[in-house]
Design a protein around this nucleic acid. Structure first.
Lengths: 345, 345
DNA sequence: TTGAAAGCGCTAACAT
DNA sequence: ATGTTAGCGCTTTCAA
């Protein structure tokens, strides 16, 4: 059963040593580039190893060296939000590039499950843990994680000691607003939601600052609820009902809200982008790309946050103290131009 | 560095043995429920272990028992398709319920990367591998996987020996078509794409069979390309241009195509669902739920396929031969009713 | 530059 | 029912 079932037993370090006519110690050194092995010996050992198809048993190596080469990734929402996938993908790529494997574990926001999952990770002797909380913002980092290097994604450490990475919300809002400004718009509204939080608050600030710097009057519309298409339609309705001069461009909190604006605009006979320019945030592909016209939006740095987290965790493992990394790192968003922003006629 | 950095060393089996006044063998037996340990002793050992916060070192246990309690999940597209996340989530849940961890590895359709990633999994002594190919359909299963129980998702083994699970495309098409039939429609078209494949072909077959059984004339429109909003708009245009009686309901290959139909219909002044009923396939949430009206669709059994794959792999590990499982298992889709299907007036 | 020997923390065989 | 002993396959002293 198991590995041996289908035939020959796997080749081990001893097989390589015998075939190369050296000790297993030398094989170990040659393979890992440690100790002092002559170049010639190292080459030969590696050739023999390759020809035999030898791959060191990571379990045995982990037991001895106390390095599992596994990083745990704890998420509260891999299934619930499509964004989580991009973070995992970035982490995955970075981990693979550094010879680490990623164990992804999901609590679906249930703290009992989360505790159990983290315990399983610790029992597996993971080298580090990435803790991504897409929903609950100000996180008390679980005590279980104190014995292992930990990095936070999309949330910050209340105690201010664990390194964390979040999108640069202000920069995102400034970039979005500036894009509209650059197209010649001056009556630009920000459609957001009334539920406070780092993303909502940061984007409002960035928007207001940019408008003010340009000598323009900011207009923020914030219906209750979460940022979905319904909120987008509602915000649009509030804007139309407000009586004043209607804006020629809107900066939406996220792509689903922008989708709601599309729906409301089409009903009101307002053309995008001819009568109204729209910009979103997320670059949530199946939505942003499939809208008609395609939605111009600010891509959130999900992939990049995943990479940053792995790199930082590995640096901590290699002896860098947490303090050496920025404790609260921010990553910029990137403009993705499609067809929903047009110059003012 | 490492686990010990932040203070006391982790508690091991020996600490428990000492505290409970028994041998480490007895602790091992008590914890794993093996061997012959008196109930009383077992209870006491477990209490002591819990009070000390003991968790067996999985690495050491894996080395000795040849069971890593890790399952590898190889995907070609975790980032590229949002669906992949739901499969991983199902696999994750099932794995956690059975005390296994899931290592997710992604090739992004690059076969060199895939080979390297699978090697890393094998070196990590994974107990089994789930191999999910969302893009390439008829897969030659990598030779590296021959020494480990393997289960396929969304693809079938050309050699017909490795267990696999795919959505039941025919059932999905029948359910979609029947839903429209039940609402009183008789002129029902199927909007799909001209690119053949198991999903496209199976759904066409299921649609035609259902229509024929009902004594109705099937109408299939298949523009070139992949199933996205553009294809949906194009299919809708072909339908309108075809001259005959226009259908009162359309069954779309997937949700993005249905989104395209929404876009085309609104431009043509056709109301959904009053003038036209629409049904999709995927239940791709941010799209299906946010459309106006919400899209009635057939949810693909992604989560369920993930669960099935883990359960089957674990059964194989426990000695069941591959032949004991269905070699080609099909899982049904589920109707999700929203607002895009209405009874014929 | 190379190798012998001692474990890493557990579980499996084999006593008792 | 419990304990003793021998490894799992590597990496790491430490000695040659």
């Amino acid at each position: 059963m198991g590995r041996a079932a289908s035939g020959s037993k796997p080749v081990g370090i001893e097989d390589v040593a015998r075939a190369a006519g050296v000790s297993i110690t030398t094989v170990s050194h040659a393979m890992n580039g440690r100790g002092h092995v002559s170049v010639k010996t190292r080459e030969r050992v590696r050739e023999v190893a390759a020809s035999l198809g030898y791959a060191p048993n990571r379990i045995a190596s982990a037991l001895r060296s106390q390095r599992s080469h596994i990083i745990g990734f704890v998420s509260d929402s891999i299934a619930t939000t499509p964004y989580a996938g991009r973070v995992v993908f970035g982490a995955q790529d970075a981990a693979a590039a550094r010879g680490q494997l990623l164990v992804v574990v999901n609590s679906n926001s249930d703290s009992a499950i989360e505790t159990a999952q983290i315990s399983a990770l610790m029992a597996q002797q993971v080298d580090a843990v990435i803790y991504a909380r897409m929903f609950h913002r100000d996180s008390d980092t679980p005590a279980q994680l104190r014995s292992v290097p930990t990095v936070l994604i999309d949330t910050v450490d209340t105690a201010g000691v664990i390194p964390s990475v979040v999108p640069d919300e202000q920069q995102i809002a400034r970039l979005a607003t500036q894009t509209l400004l650059d197209a010649g718009h001056t009556r630009i509204a920000h459609l957001t939601v009334a539920t406070p939080g780092p993303a909502v608050d940061g984007r409002i600030e960035g928007y207001i600052a940019t408008m003010t710097d340009a000598g323009l009057e900011p207009v923020v519309v914030a219906p209750p609820g979460i940022g979905n298409a319904t909120a987008g339609r509602e915000a649009f309705a509030q804007l139309a009902a407000s009586g004043g001069e209607t804006p020629t461009a809107v900066f939406c909190f996220n792509d689903p809200m922008a989708m709601g604006v599309y729906q409301a605009a089409i009903r009101a006979g307002i053309g995008i982008p001819d009568d109204l320019s729209v910009i979103g945030v997320d670059d949530f592909l199946p939505v942003a790309a499939e809208l008609l016209p395609g939605l111009t939006t600010i891509a959130l740095p999900h992939y990049e946050m995943g990479v940053w987290a792995i790199d930082t965790a590995l640096a901590m493992l290699d002896g860098a103290r947490a303090a050496d990394a920025h404790v609260e790192s921010r990553i910029a968003g990137r403009l993705v131009e499609r067809g929903s922003v047009a110059p003012l006629a």
